[in-house]
């Protein structure tokens, strides 16, 4: 593993453009509505706050193993990757373009706490338009895959967007949820959720528990090449639109899960309840070793 670590390029540490360049075929990315067009947030300007030339999101076209795809990546460092009016419109436009031009897939590198609260209703409307456009692309037969491994994870409205995707690729460090740990701690107190306890946060919202519960399709290591490999695997797998019966089955499975793990306070409780071997050690394993255990449990 140490030899591998030298060649590893962290997804977590990379910015949005570096993530895209690590994902797609070299030299194939062409950006749409890029920073030189200066589509900046009018709301942040009114509030006298700094703007970004790309409003914290990068969208465009590229190829992955020669297949044409559309790709978007949120910039977690700019206002927590939050979805403002322009930011949301760029992602919505990307998904509308997918509906109209039928690429092989849309890849969304999510890194966001959700709606940009500064933009109030405009941000909320933007994220609802984004959800609608995502479902529109899927209905047109274009699979949409989310990739989560940044410092902001996928929370709030972007947590919902993530779960609307055909599949999710996550690293352990990537986190997925609705209300984030800090929000829960603020509202319910530190006894409910200690957001400073990173190991706890990862066991409850991180990629490993999401993979265990089936919400993440693939768990990968924190590495640009591993995310690219995951994207290629999902693209090869395809994602036919599922019918009403499958959705009803999903709903029943979720209800059963909520009942079965109703008393769980920690991801560890769930790993124990599922009877996984050495549940205490699962958090320490790399992605390959963890996946082997989960795959074995799923086929058993």
């Amino acid at each position: 593993m140490s030899a591998h670590a030298i060649t590893r390029r962290s997804w977590f540490e990379a910015d949005a453009r570096t993530r895209i360049h690590g994902l797609v075929d070299a030299g194939s990315f062409s950006e749409l509505c890029g920073p030189h067009e200066r589509l900046t947030s009018p709301h942040l300007a009114v509030l006298d706050l700094p703007v970004a030339f790309d409003d914290g999101v990068v969208v465009g076209e590229a190829t992955l193993d020669g297949e044409r795809i559309l790709v978007g990546a949120q910039q977690g460092e700019f206002n927590g990757g939050s979805v403002g009016e322009i930011h949301g419109a760029k992602l919505r436009g990307l998904l509308d373009r997918a509906r109209d031009t039928r690429p092989a897939a849309v890849l969304l590198a999510i890194d966001s706490g959700g709606v940009r609260l500064h933009e109030a209703n405009a941000g909320l409307i933007a994220i609802s338009e984004l959800m609608r456009a995502l479902l529109g692309a899927r209905a047109a037969g274009v699979p949409v895959y989310g990739l989560i491994g940044g410092s902001c994870g996928a929370f709030g409205g972007m947590g919902i967007v993530a779960r609307l995707c055909d599949g999710l690729i996550m690293s352990e460090e990537g986190r997925l949820g609705l209300s984030g740990p800090e929000v829960i701690e603020t509202v319910k107190g530190v006894d409910e959720f200690d957001s400073k306890d990173r190991a706890l946060v990862w066991r409850i919202t991180g990629g490993k528990i999401r993979r265990t519960l089936g919400e993440a399709t693939l768990l990968v290591d924190d590495d640009l090449g591993a995310f690219r490999g995951g994207a290629k695997a999902l693209l090869a797998r395809g994602a036919p639109l599922r019918g009403l019966a499958a959705l009803d089955a999903d709903q029943a499975a979720l209800a059963a899960r909520a009942q079965r793990h109703a008393d769980a306070r920690d991801g560890l409780d769930i790993w124990r309840a599922l009877g996984l071997p050495d549940a205490e050690r699962l958090a320490m394993l790399d992605a390959d070793a963890f996946n082997r255990i989960i795959d074995r449990a799923e086929t058993a």
Binding site: D15, P35, P50, A52, F53, G56, F78
Partner: peptide
């Protein structure tokens, strides 16, 4: 040439070149 570097986040900046 055109270029961009940096991210607008606390203690940081972006520079766009045209």
């Amino acid at each position: 040439a055109r270029a961009l570097c940096g991210v607008v986040s606390s203690g940081n900046l972006e520079i766009l070149v045209d």
